[in-house]
Each structure stands twice: as structure tokens, then as C-alpha cells.
Nucleic acid binder design. Structure first.
Length: 492
RNA sequence: GUCCCCAUCGUCUAGUCAGGUCCAGGACACCGGCCUUUCACGCCGGCAGCACCGGUUCAAAUCCGGUUGGGGACGCCA
């Protein structure tokens, strides 16, 4: 059987955004699933907007997501001569012709048509130029573009899209489109097709916005005598207002790097993105990498566009709640060793990483991560909400301070007593700590909850967290005692 | 304006190709309860949808037509 080859061809005009990432993921999944190859091709032929920085950023984002490619990156700009050779071939075989119309003239006609609310198509002025006329214009040095000669009369270009089914477009609805500019540079529609032919792409998996281009490209394949690949167009990703996601209007909120910086586990993000516009008959949502590859199929891609429901300025969610929930799932359920490197990265970023955490204190570290992770949503939480476990320099949440400590003047005397008694414990265990604290509460004639919540706030800086006695063991006897002693300053 | 695509809970979706088993299933979010030293987790329960109109049929979310709505493409950008 023929080898399956897919490609991901980003144009390096900015960061990788979620739409591009999704396209890359689907191509990658299909290649993995079928034992095929994924080709990475940088379409850097837009001289104005392409940048090296963007190329690096895109590659970095792909790597972070865990998307691997088998060939490339190839650079489209290196193959311009090949694109032009194809155009010459089309000229010679009579599938294309030189057009001497000026851009200004065409722009004017287009504008005129738009005003009259009429359809505009190139009128084919130069299509019927005699060889003599062409020669004269050329001799006079009139610049020209090269247009593909689209078949005229009845008939249509048809193909069967793997996702959308049979698509047919009448010849009369396709104009003789430009494939080479008057400055001699090829256009995307030509370059992209020639590259796909050279790279022996068998399956073009791309956004639905490429659907309208497909009949034109098929015409090029046929004129060049090349085999037409299979096409699978995927539904688009829309913003909450149903507009196409774009770097321009959504900024960093749609950048893959944004999610990396905000504490997403790469696989969780891939898993979530796969769910946008793709599903299995059983509506399953959580997949390991192996499971996703196994479950993936192009037929599972939906035809209706999907909304990436990010919430700008939402106090509770900084992006699509579903994306966060998938991430949360992984943070809570993955073997703790698998999230260890990500927690480490966050602690390093926060400047509170201790090398012992992967040496002498590794057991403690893993146990602590495991203890606190059930209420975290993103890996950055370990360095913010969880800071007190890993560093002695941590902030006290003012609300918690007010509610759990300042409300009870008694802590002025309770904290020192608790510090003494906890320090006196020989074997510092959950049971012992609990016993001491409950007895102390009884002695003072108050509810244990008051002491428990006050201690939690002092020791962790927060009103919420794991069961207090587990917290005390995690933080450790000496640090707990120290923190309690220092707490009298809250009343100064 | 022309061409193309799409239409199930707020969001992601199953079900549509092969009409009955769907007074529509799951997930997220939301609400309530249990658990509890707090917050989570977990468990239990709830809210909420087949865009509309017509047709075919014994029977339609599923098939057909139209309407409306949404999206995309119409560049000498990629």
C-alpha cells in the first residue's frame, strides 16, 4: 500500500495559534494512526511578513505540544524556481497564458463591480490574445502575470472531501486566476500545490477556509498531470462571537505559548484541542497519547464550526472552562512523577526551587505535590497557591487573615501555646498533632475549627487547603512551630 | 453582490449516511444535597437543546424543499 503523507505548512508571520495547532495535531494524529509521515513545511514566501523569530516560535510551540514530524522543516522559498518551472510548463502545454492587464486596471474594474453589487471575475481579456499580440507586448516590455486557463463551458470540478463529502464547483464560477505575479514571483496557490506534489502529499488536511481554493488547486494538479491527493477539510475554530480566530483580533489569548505560560500541561492542551471539532461515537473525552492515536479518524471530524469559548475578563476562568477542566483532570490524575517536571519548572520560575527536591527531599516533594494538587487547575498554582509548602517566604491572603485570625483576639495567646505544645511532640504524626490541637481547643473552651482554620492560614497563608493535620506533617514540625511563633505580629 | 459550507443544551458534542429502541445521551459550566476543620476531590440529584415553516411517511433530530441564522472564500497575501 502507498505510504500516507500529510503536511503542516504554517506561514511564519507570527506565533502558532490554536487554529494552526489544531491543524497540526490532526495531521500528526492521522500520520501516527496510519503509520504515515508528517512533513513540516514553512511557507515563507511572503517576503514582507515572514520572520526568523516566528519560525523559531512555531517550532518551539510544536515541540512543546509534542508534535513530531518526519521530514522538514522544508522552506518554500527554496523552491521558487521549481514553482516557476511548473508555470512555464503550464504555459507551454497551453494550460496557462500571459496576462498583460495591469493591477490598477483590474482593481478599478473590481471596485466598479463591487459598487454595482455585481460579481467580479477576470474577464479573460488576455486569454484570447494572438501569439503575435503576445509577442508584441512582450517585445514592448509590458509586464505580465500568468493565469491558469480554466476550462470554459458546461462542466465542473468535483472531488470527494473526506469530511464534507462531494463538493462540485462549476467552471463558470472559477475565474482564470493568477499563478505568477508580474514581478515574476509565484503565488501561494501554485507554490503550495507544486510543493505538495513534490513532497508526495497523499492527504491534505486543513481548515475549511481552504475549501474554496481546492477546486482551483485540483485544476493545477490536473494541468500538471499530477495525481490529486485526498482532501479533508476541518471545521474552523471560532471565538465566542463566532468570528474566525485570528492573531490580529485575539492577541496572545489564542497563542499556544500563552497556554504554556499559564500552566497548561502540553498533552492536556492537545487533548482539549482534539475535542474541538472532533469526537468519537461514545463522546469520550480523555485520551492518553496512544489512546488518541488509536481512536482518531478523519470521519470523526465535525462539519460545524466549533467555538473556542475563552472568557476574557472572567474572574473565574481565564480561558475556555473546558480547556481548564481537561488540564485539571491531568494535574489530578496523572502519576505524580509525570507532573513533577512541570511543577519543578514553575518553582524554578518563581525562584523557590531547591535542588534537594529531586535529591534527598524527593519523596517529601512528591508526597506534597500529591497532597495539594487536587484543588489546582494549572501548574502555576503550585508556585502561587502552593508557595508556602516550598518556601518560607510566602504571602498571607488578607481575607483569610481577617476571617480566620484577626476575628479572634485569642490567637494572641493561643499561637504561642500551640507552638510550644506542637514543638513538644516527640513523634510528629497526623494523629499526635490532631490530638494536641483538639485538646488545646477544649482547654480554651473553643471549637477546634477555630484553631484549625487559624493555623491553616498562618502556616499556608490561605483559608483553603488540604486537611490541616496533613498540612502540618507536610510543612514539618519545626517550620510549623516557627510560623506559629511569628504569627503574633499579626496583632501588632 | 457571487460561490461554497454549516445548523442538537450557555460551550464541546453523541445520535443524522442505513427514519422507529431518542418525550434526545455524555462532558464542561451552573444550581442543590451528602461527606467535612476550610476549600477541593468524590458521590447523588437538578437546570438546559433537535433554529423555523412546509412536505414525504404508520412513524422524522434523522429524508426532501424553503426560510432564517452563522461561517468561509471571492487579492499580482499565505
Amino acid at each position: 500500500m502507498e505510504e500516507i503523507r500529510t503536511r503542516f505548512p504554517p506561514s511564519p508571520t507570527g506565533y502558532l495559534h490554536i487554529g494552526g495547532a489544531r491543524t497540526a495535531i490532526f495531521n500528526w494524529l492521522f500520520a501516527q494512526k496510519t503509520g504515515g509521515k508528517l512533513i513540516l513545511r514553512i511557507e515563507d514566501t511572503d517576503e514582507e511578513r515572514s520572520s526568523e523569530e516566528s519560525i523559531q516560535g512555531i517550532i518551539e510551540s510544536l515541540k512543546w505540544l509534542g508534535i513530531t514530524w518526519d521530514e522538514g522543516p522544508y522552506f518554500q522559498s527554496r523552491f521558487i524556481n521549481e514553482h516557476l518551472a511548473a508555470a512555464r510548463k503550464l504555459l507551454e502545454s497551453g494550460h496557462a497564458y500571459k496576462c498583460f492587464c495591469t493591477k490598477e486596471e483590474l482593481d478599478r474594474k473590481r471596485e466598479e463591480a463591487r459598487k454595482k453589487k455585481a460579481d467580479f471575475q477576470y474577464d479573460g481579456t488576455c486569454r484570447n490574445l494572438t501569439p503575435k499580440e503576445v509577442a508584441e507586448k512582450e517585445a514592448a516590455g509590458v509586464p505580465y502575470t500568468i493565469r491558469l486557463k480554466v476550462p470554459r463551458g458546461e462542466g465542473f470540478v468535483g472531488f470527494e472531501d473526506i469530511v464534507y463529502g462531494i463538493i462540485e464547483k462549476k467552471y463558470e464560477d472559477i475565474e482564470d486566476f493568477v499563478i505568477v505575479r508580474s514581478n515574476g514571483r509565484p503565488l501561494y496557490i501554485l507554490s503550495n500545490t507544486v510543493d505538495d506534489i513534490r513532497d508526495r502529499i497523499t492527504h491534505v488536511i486543513r481548515g475549511q477556509d481552504g475549501l474554496a481554493n481546492t477546486p482551483k488547486q485540483i485544476l493545477i494538479y490536473k494541468a500538471l498531470g499530477a495525481l490529486v491527493p485526498k482532501f479533508a477539510h476541518m471545521s474552523l475554530t471560532l471565538d465566542p462571537k463566532k468570528a474566525k480566530i485570528s492573531k490580529r483580533t485575539h492577541g496572545e489569548l489564542v497563542a499556544v505559548s500563552f497556554y504554556r505560560e499559564h500552566g497548561f500541561l502540553p498533552w492536556a492542551f492537545v487533548n482539549y484541542l482534539a475535542l474541538l471539532g472532533w469526537s468519537t461515537p461514545d463522546s469520550r473525552e480523555i485520551f492518553s497519547k496512544e489512546e488518541l492515536i488509536k481512536a482518531f479518524s478523519l470521519q470523526g471530524i465535525g462539519r460545524a464550526n466549533a467555538v473556542f469559548d475563552f472568557r476574557k475578563n472572567d474572574p473565574k476562568f481565564f480561558t475556555d472552562p473546558k480547556a481548564i477542566s481537561v488540564n485539571t483532570h491531568y494535574i489530578r490524575n496523572l502519576p505524580v512523577e509525570e507532573i513533577e517536571p512541570y511543577v519543578r519548572a514553575e518553582l524554578e520560575k518563581a525562584g523557590i526551587w531547591d535542588p534537594d527536591f529531586q535529591g534527598a527531599k524527593r519523596d517529601w516533594f512528591l508526597r506534597t505535590v500529591d497532597l495539594i494538587r487536587t484543588r489546582y487547575h494549572v501548574t502555576t498554582d503550585f508556585a502561587t497557591l502552593g508557595r508556602a509548602y516550598f518556601s518560607d517566604d510566602y504571602p498571607i491572603d488578607p481575607k483569610a487573615l481577617k476571617k480566620n485570625i484577626l476575628k479572634h483576639e485569642g490567637f494572641k495567646e493561643w499561637f504561642p501555646v500551640l507552638a510550644d505544645r506542637l514543638q513538644a511532640i516527640k513523634a510528629f504524626t497526623v494523629e499526635e498533632a490532631e490530638k494536641v490541637i483538639r485538646e488545646t481547643a477544649e482547654e480554651f473552651g473553643i471549637k477546634a475549627g477555630i484553631l484549625i482554620n487559624g493555623i491553616r492560614t498562618t502556616v499556608t497563608g490561605q483559608a483553603v487547603g488540604p486537611g490541616l493535620f496533613d498540612v502540618l506533617i507536610a510543612v514539618g514540625q519545626s517550620r510549623v512551630v516557627e510560623r506559629l511563633r511569628k504569627s503574633v505580629i499579626f496583632f501588632e
